[in-house]
């Protein structure tokens, strides 16, 4: 096989590898973070059911902010893989 073509294949493969690893690594932190947010929100709701509505809204906000990091990882994955 042509050496140049091989190098090209290698670059493509590394790109795919990097994209996959990047997304997986980017998902770790937000996964833990969302777990913490929701877990604490449930504790708060169980302790004070009367403020459950406010806690739920704040929980969704927290999830949205935390999730943004994972989504940026996903976007990087798309950028690397599909361009």
């Amino acid at each position: 096989m042509d050496l140049l073509a091989q190098a090209d294949n290698a670059v493509d493969g590394l790109k795919a590898l990097g994209a996959g690893l990047g997304y997986g690594l980017a998902a770790i932190g937000p996964g833990v973070g969302i777990g913490l947010v929701v877990g604490n929100a449930i504790t708060a709701m169980a302790r004070q059911p009367e403020s459950a509505g406010m806690v739920r809204t704040t929980m969704f906000l927290g999830i949205a902010f935390t999730e943004a990091l994972a989504l940026i990882g996903f976007v990087v994955f798309i950028l690397l893989n599909f361009t």
Binding site: E67, A68, L71, V75
Partner: peptide, 11 residues
């Protein structure tokens, strides 16, 4: 983040 959140979630 507003744009990317919506876009990436739906995609």
């Amino acid at each position: 983040s507003l744009a990317v959140r919506l876009f990436a979630n739906m995609l």
